[in-house]
Design a protein around this nucleic acid. Structure first.
Lengths: 199, 199
DNA sequence: CAGATGACAGATTTCAATATCTGTCATCTG
DNA sequence: CAGATGACAGATATTGAAATCTGTCATCTG
């Protein structure tokens, strides 16, 4: 769009790459497109990112990190009832994903492809961060005597995996169906019952 | 293989279609291939199945029904402890899927494509049958005073969805990883804890 | 006449030629 | 001389013509 006289930074490249991905989709967005949009040669892009895959990874990480940050607020919330906090966290995650999928389906499809490409690396770390947050919530719940769990990390992992259907993009098609909301509640209810400490 | 002089039945067509799918894969298996393998014209195949999609659906249903039947035995088991029976059912489902995926990865990939094609119809019914079995186990558990659940069907649905990761072919890649077994146990433990009746 | 056939139209797939892209690097420029 | 360039080789994607497939149906055959 603009010839942009500003210095070429990794940050500007990432912004432009997002834009190009939004416009062209994951299959047709090329490094040459990104360079063209920035008004530079594609060789310059390779000065900041070693490969096209690395560039895509960086964009994907940015996108995932936005969600991680959003949820961190809930973990940090002080003195809430552990069960309520765990439910709030899971609900916020589901809501965030559902909103992304619903508001801009094409962009969501683009990121679904990107995350599939980096399942083992970037997405793996993202999931580790999320289960880390969950572990923190469970740990606090155990400390408060509200939850019973031998190992908070194991329990958190189980909770995360048991709710895959409500955050894995693979199931996005199910998220706007009539029963989705009550299905979610039923799973969360069952999991919270399983965590709750016996008197 | 053989020119087969026997009468052309839907059953024989299904058997041959399985064979052709096994050989050629889902992308390249054509109705013409099936007809050729049977030594008939493809018009004759269309006398038994209205479309190629209908033929594929029928094959897929056969395949899924084999698993349904396997699990029905566990539901029918008399007088077992409800928790043990539920665990056995979930374990058998996971084991059956994992075996299929591991023993013949190409065939499993073929059926993964087929089930994706018929997600709304055949697979939907298959899932309904499985959750029906689960509901029966939960209902019996509630009757025996071992489980607490307002609505057994809802609880069964929640258990099924919470274990998606261990039966949805989408996750097949995870099933042979080191942690899979203990991840499975952690989720099932948590779910059983959630179902268990309080004294 | 129940059931099989194969020619056919329109849709889909294959294939090979062509164009574009990725990643490198010798060269240029401020 | 730090940073940008663009020519280049090999890999990948696009394209359009030809081949194959799907689904129908008038016709044939036991």
């Amino acid at each position: 769009m603009s010839p942009t006289p500003q210095p070429l930074t990794a940050e500007r490249i990432l912004e432009t790459t997002e834009e190009v991905l939004r416009r062209h989709g994951p299959a047709k967005a090329t490094v040459v497109d990104v360079a063209r949009a920035l008004g530079v040669s594609h060789g310059s892009v390779y000065r900041h990112f070693r490969t096209k895959a690395a560039l895509r990874e960086a964009v994907t990480k940015r996108w995932l990190d936005r969600t991680t940050l959003l949820l961190a607020d809930i973990v940090a919330e002080p003195g809430t009832d552990p069960a309520a906090r765990l439910r709030a966290w899971l609900t916020a995650l589901f809501a965030a994903k559902r909103r992304k999928a619903f508001d801009d389906p094409e962009l969501f499809a683009t990121y679904t492809v990107l995350t599939t490409e980096t399942a083992e690396t970037v997405v793996g770390e993202h999931i580790a961060e999320l289960t880390g947050q969950l572990t923190e919530i469970v740990r606090a719940g155990v400390a408060a005597g509200a939850f019973a769990a031998e190992d908070p990390a194991t329990a958190a992992g189980a909770v995360f995996r048991a709710t895959d259907r409500f955050h894995d993009p693979h199931y996005a098609g199910e998220w706007e169906k009539p029963g989705a909301e009550s299905d979610f509640r039923a799973v969360v209810d069952l999991l919270l019952r399983g965590l709750r400490a016996r008197d």
